[in-house]
């Protein structure tokens, strides 16, 4: 899973790079517009180390932001799963807030919280949170009738059991959404850094953009891609392990 993610990324990255170099060759563009192989390699050597730590910095915010957004999505998803007035109020509110692009809200966040770690974390969580919420709400609001019926008719149903049944029945969907949301959390953090932070790879990209340095941006994209692939691969492996552990019986059977 992990290696597949990495080589899939490498294939896409190098196809993109070859495409750019082809355009450069066909239109005989200078290194300023599209850097040549030499310049890209040279830039790789110069900034790889710095960018690695920048991406790791971004990654730390991403992971934390994702954890927060998962907790928030499950909290709201569980609270909003009922077809009661409160449930539908929570659902409608969540859907409506989602309509605002976070990037548009970002300046307000920066003015209120400054341009440090908390703002980055909040924006990353918010960008990652809404798609997660939609999935969690969808899963939590859909009854698994053939399992739940017994507990309802015998008066044994508790909200914890209901959540457990629905989460277990949709485990694959949940792990896919969570690992998919890692990309969103990363994108959110990068956007936040690009707009207003003093650290992270998003900030480095902004600096490179100021200097119209596409070579640096290509290195940044490479580092982001590799590290997000590793992170996603780890999440998927973890998801598989959780699924196996939760669904394997003592006798060794699997679902």
């Amino acid at each position: 899973m992990l290696f597949r993610r990495i080589y899939q990324f490498l294939i896409v990255y190098f196809i993109g790079l070859i495409f750019l170099l082809l355009i450069k060759a066909v239109l005989s563009l200078s290194d300023y517009v599209i850097p040549g192989v030499g310049l890209i390699t040279e830039t790789f050597g110069q900034v790889l180390n710095t960018y690695f730590f920048d991406v790791m910095n971004t990654m730390s915010v991403t992971v934390l932001g994702q954890c927060i957004s998962i907790a928030m999505a499950f909290g709201v998803g569980i609270a909003g799963r009922k077809s009661s007035w409160m449930g539908s109020f929570i659902k409608v509110t969540a859907y409506n807030i989602q309509a605002y692009p976070i990037v548009a809200l970002a300046p307000i966040i920066f003015i209120l919280l400054g341009d440090g770690f908390i703002s980055r974390l909040l924006i990353a969580s918010m960008i990652c949170y809404f798609p997660l919420l939609l999935s969690v709400l969808g899963i939590m609001a859909t009854p698994v009738e053939d399992i739940e019926h017994f507990y309802i008719i015998t008066g044994r149903m508790r909200w914890q059991l209901e959540v457990k049944i629905r989460a277990f029945e949709n485990l694959s969907k949940i792990t896919t959404v969570i690992s998919g949301s890692a990309t969103l959390a990363m994108a959110g953090t990068i956007v936040a850094e690009f707009i207003a932070a003093n650290a992270g790879i998003g900030y480095s990209i902004r600096v490179a953009l100021y200097q119209s340095d596409l070579a640096k941006i290509l290195v940044a994209l490479f580092m982001i891609g590799i590290i997000i692939s590793i992170y996603q691969g780890c999440l998927e492996t973890l998801g598989e392990q959780i699924k196996t552990r939760w669904s394997v019986s003592k006798g060794g059977n699997t679902i």
């Binding site: 053939d146 019926h149 015998t154 049944i165």
Partner: peptide, 22 residues
């Protein structure tokens, strides 16, 4: 009580365990 064909027990543990709990 109403029981029907194709009802399911949760899958996270063995059937005996579920039976004990109810």
């Amino acid at each position: 009580l109403y029981s029907y064909n194709l009802e399911r027990l949760p899958g996270w543990s063995g059937t005996g365990n579920h039976l004990d709990k109810v």
